[in-house]
Simulated assay, not measured.
Amino acid sequence: MKRVLIISQHFYPEIGSHANRIKQLYMQLKKESFDVRIFTSEPSYPNKKIYENGEFWDEDSLNCEKDNIVRISISNRKYSNSILNRLFYYLEVALKFVLLIIKDKRGYDFILVTSPPIFTGFVGLFAKYRYKSNFILDIRDLWPESLKGVGVFNNPLILKFFGALEKILYRKSDKIVINSLGFQEYIQQKAKIPKSKIVFIPNGAVKEEIAFFNKEQNKPKKIIYAGNLGLAQNTELINKLVPLLEKQGIQLTIIGYGVNRKELLNSIKEYKNVTIIKPLTRKECFKIIAEHDLGLVTLKDKEVFKTVLPGKIIDYMTCGVPIVGVIDGYAKEIVEKERVGITSKCDDPQQILSHIKWLLDDEKLRKEMSLREQQVILNDFNWETNIKKLVEYMN
């Protein structure tokens, strides 16, 4: 039986697409008869307190695994806009992972590491030589390109330095896994590597998560925003949309977390058409998403975000909820090609409102989109199928 070590800062029971992706990689590889172990941190995103609640520990098969899930404790837990604060956090995580690897006496056939942060990527490179193993690099975001995109860090010399480190990781890895096809050309050109070195395994769903249901008719029209309210998301647009939605009698539900959550919620708390829900488990979140008529996606208009496929697009499709997206590039291409929503590059709130009203007024079209979404998830974004690409390489 081949042995795999996964190294990831985030993992079950944390919320968010990063933790869920690694959870699925871990579980699906185990189902494929690999001996899998993970080095990760204690759950703390978006804050440690929510994991004191037992409802987040809802995967019994993982709760029983004490030997194969090794967690480090982190003293610096604060998530903020401060690049310095995040840097210290990432470095502490990386250092503790290195110490774990040095102490670990086991052997592994494959090291699978997810990035960003890039520091964890270099932990994986260290592990490759420490264990004399194959190194699989999972890329969830382009880094440091995304630093420029969110506008928190623009020092050209330091960005160039991190860009050189990024290139080393691409070249030293034995296989690169990407979660968006928008990354492929960038990575190939950046590192001058062949296309055959890259495998596309998007974020997705397992079959049991796909919601087949009939929405109740004659209920107030409701839209939802579920996911990160961070530096990449256009929270200013949501702020401007809320009063326009209220005038039209359209309900908005927000299940959000992230560094801009508090600021956004304070700015819209006076409006009666907004329902704020605290972070939930994936299962509970999906139940609520499925009760809505439309799902909202917003990204800032930056070049790097044209390469990403936001996890909430996959989540909305899994729940059969048509999409209204302020997106561009690869994400826009997916939504339009599959005909599962309406997108715009323009962040004019009046135009987005007109898109929302148009879809809310056409029940037949929404139902057609919903059925297509379910099929797209089964065909293209299904973990049970897509993991075979990685298994084929590892065998």
Rank of each mutant, 00 (worst) to 15 (best):
Y271C: 04
V152Y: 01
V242F: 07
I323F: 04
N179S: 11
F213D: 07
G256V: 00
A19N: 00
A226G: 11
P310M: 07
K96L: 13
L309C: 13
V152N: 06
Y131L: 10
G325K: 08
G341T: 09
K337Y: 11
F11N: 05
P202I: 03
T275W: 00
K306D: 08
N239M: 07
I250S: 07
N386R: 14
V4Q: 12
V391L: 13
L296F: 06
F122Q: 05
G325E: 10
Y257C: 02
F56I: 06
Y79P: 03
A205N: 01
G258Y: 00
R372W: 10
I288C: 05
E32S: 15
L165A: 12
S41D: 02
K31S: 11
I210H: 02
L296I: 05
Q351E: 15
I224G: 03
Y26C: 04
A232V: 14
P144L: 02
K128Y: 06
K389T: 09
P43N: 11
S146H: 09
R261D: 04
K345N: 14
V335C: 15
S33I: 07
Y131K: 09
R77P: 01
K175R: 15
L159V: 01
N134F: 12
A226K: 00
E65L: 15
K222M: 08
V376R: 12
L84D: 01
L181W: 00
K132M: 14
E92F: 09
F161V: 08
N266E: 02
Y257I: 00
V199C: 12
S44A: 11
N260L: 07
F135M: 02
E166C: 06
P156T: 04
F213N: 06
F212S: 06
Y330Q: 15
P279L: 02
V206E: 00
L147V: 01
K302G: 01
I136Q: 01
I83Q: 06
K148A: 08
I101S: 08
D347C: 13
F11I: 07
Q24T: 04
G329D: 13
A211T: 12
E65Y: 08
E392D: 11
N81P: 05
G227A: 08
S75D: 14
G54P: 10
L112Y: 12
N47A: 09
S33Q: 11
L359E: 03
I223W: 05
N228F: 09
D141I: 03
S73K: 15
C319L: 02
R339H: 12
S115F: 08
I201D: 03
G163Y: 13
I198D: 00
V376K: 10
L378R: 14
L245V: 05
N20K: 03
H10M: 13
G230S: 14
T114I: 02
V93H: 01
L371W: 08
I111Y: 05
Y51P: 06
F119R: 03
L62P: 00
T114F: 01
E333S: 14
N47E: 15
K221C: 02
V123D: 01
I313C: 03
V70H: 02
K78F: 07
L125I: 05
Y186F: 15
G230Y: 11
P43K: 09
E208W: 00
Y225C: 07
K312W: 04
L157E: 13
F161Q: 00
R140L: 01
V98I: 15
Q24H: 14
K78Y: 08
P13Q: 06
D301P: 02
Q184I: 10
